[in-house]
């Protein structure tokens, strides 16, 4: 960004997901699908072909019965701000046709479907597997296209798509604010579909830079961790877990490495 353009309206939207509360029920996944016009096939059991912008993973501690433990981990796009928070997330800088972009205003990584020509380099770049390719033409069983959301365009075959923190809701909230003579929106006015749907209130969303937003405090929770911090991708999705093995599962550690997942002291 050029000198002089810096302003206090810069936001960094992010998410804090409380894994202690998450029950793995999948409501977030479906809310996301409904909001974002995600197509479906007759067979969706191959998860590597299935488009789920938000996928709930099941983690286990690998111990035998009855010491086994499992934990669910919902994984939206991490909206990495990249090394040094410069916005060069792993996927953005690799896109040859500038179809994916990082906005310094919101910290959201966007995907422009009409610009994407489907080279899938971004998918190779993303270690979280948040990017999905449209292997098929999107076809709805007769009549079902009636529930499509007009705020999100339907993606054609052959392009990559991913979670965008329901950016359309940000736009809608902005429009409302303009009507009311405001230029900024309130925390509650912009919440992604998954956050809204979560029946356990496990997901919190807001501006990570704004001390008034709930996520600001939550990200400093001693239980907080992010996925693959060692790669310096700088994700904007934080997870909370009171279980050490879960926090440990957030990153790769080599043997005998001192694992720093102890709850931090306040």
């Amino acid at each position: 960004m050029k000198e002089g353009q810096h302003d206090q309206h810069i936001k960094k939207y992010g998410m804090v997901i409380d894994l202690d509360k998450c029950t793995g029920c999948g409501a977030c996944m479906v809310a996301c699908m409904q909001e974002n016009n995600i197509p479906f096939q007759k067979d969706e059991t191959d998860k590597m072909l299935s488009i789920t912008w938000l996928r709930v993973f099941k983690l286990d501690n690998g111990k035998p019965y009855p010491d086994t433990d499992i934990c669910y981990l919902p994984r939206p796009c991490m909206h990495c701000s990249g090394i040094g928070e410069h916005g060069h997330s792993p996927c953005v800088s690799v896109c040859p046709a500038t179809a994916t972009d990082y906005s310094m205003e919101t910290g959201i990584v966007s995907q422009i479907y009409t610009r994407c020509f489907g080279c899938r380099y971004c998918m190779a770049a993303c270690p979280y597997h948040v990017r999905h390719f449209n292997w098929w033409d999107p076809v709805w069983p007769s009549g079902m296209e009636r529930s499509l959301n007009p705020n999100v365009s339907v993606r054609m075959r052959g392009v990559v798509e991913k979670c965008n923190f329901c950016f359309q809701r940000y736009q809608i909230a902005k429009e409302k604010a303009f009507t009311e003579g405001r230029t900024e929106i309130e925390e509650h006015e912009y919440q992604p579909a998954c956050v809204e749907a979560c029946p356990a209130n496990a997901i919190t969303f807001g501006d990570l830079l704004n001390p008034k937003h709930k996520v600001y405090k939550l990200k400093q929770d001693p239980r907080a961790f992010r996925l693959l911090e060692k790669l310096h991708t700088n994700p904007k999705v934080y997870y909370l877990s009171s279980r050490e093995w879960v926090r440990e599962a957030g990153d790769n550690y080599i043997e005998n490495e001192k694992v720093d997942v102890e709850p931090k002291k306040h």
Partner: peptide, 18 residues
């Protein structure tokens, strides 16, 4: 108008595209 795109140094694409 604020030009926040990291890629193009212009307006981020999804301000106008969906």
């Amino acid at each position: 108008v604020k030009q926040y795109s990291v890629q193009t140094k212009k307006g981020p694409c999804f301000v106008c595209h969906k």
